[in-house]
Amino acid sequence: MELEVFIIQTLVKILVVLLIFSALAGFTTYLERKVLAFMQRRLGPMTVGPWGLLQVLADGIKLFTKEDIVPTNSIKPIFKIAPVILPATAFIAIAGVPLFPEFQAFGMTIQPIIVDSNIGVLYVLGIMAIGMFSPLLAGLSSGNKWSLLGGARTAIQLLSFEVVTGLSILAPVILIGSLNLIDINNYQIENGWLILTQPIAFVLFLIAGYAETNRTPFDLLEHESEIVSGYATEYSGMRWGLFFIGEYVNMFIVSFLTVLIFLGGFGEGTLIDGLCYLGKVLFFIFLFLWTRAAWPHIRPDQLMWLTWKVLMPLAVINVVITGLVVMF
């Protein structure tokens, strides 16, 4: 009986998370266009529905019905698999993120997290990193030199930023002594938000998060003015759309993780705390869009310089100092 309840609960949770986040990914594209428009003193999408709200729906219809082109010289099986990897890994990763404090409903306690494991943070970051195979395979299998350049840039971006992500969460983890995201949240109820004790780690994690999700200023993979559309050059229709669902879900994951690890998460877990939690997450989504409007792209060599000569030494020093403070 216990097992059956558990299985049904998990299946329902998976379904709800899938539906909510696919819809949110679409809605965030609308938000992104509106925010960018207001920052550039335009109106943004206005034609379809009130304030252009139905634009998402129109885009969806367009993406689904557009002709699906597979280039002749591409390696077809891998070309077709590549766009699926990114949303798949994003949704697998979100299984490890607590999306709301636990609450009572239908006469039982519901924990809005699908997998509550001892290694939460590492699990989420590890699966997110696998998502980088998607642009890489897309770039390599397209048979197009712009795509190939996009793929090559994926490889350097991942190799550079895996290190910074890992080292930047190491210092908070030393303080907390656990990798479980709920333990991390509970630690901050007693000891205050970690951003106060670990400001450097916070900034490093945020920068690395921007690179993991390929957002401006690190969207080298599809930098329009240099390499057409990078790894996505040969894609059209829903295959192209899948890359973007994955990217937006990853944005949400990074925002959730930042809030959980550094900004107190959902605190005590009351309803108001839960709403504050979602509010903080939305602020970070807004920050992603704000950065896109305000910041220019950087070049690949600047990215390497930034990672290996600035961020990584800073992260290592941060870890060493935290270790010394904890020890003495």
């Binding site: 990193a129 696998i130 980088m132």
Partner: peptide
Amino acid sequence: ADFLGVVQLIVYTGAVIALYAFAM
């Protein structure tokens, strides 16, 4: 063995991507 599983994930993602870079 959760920890080892995640180590396997993280280490081999990076390692295989380096291989891809060489193949490129």
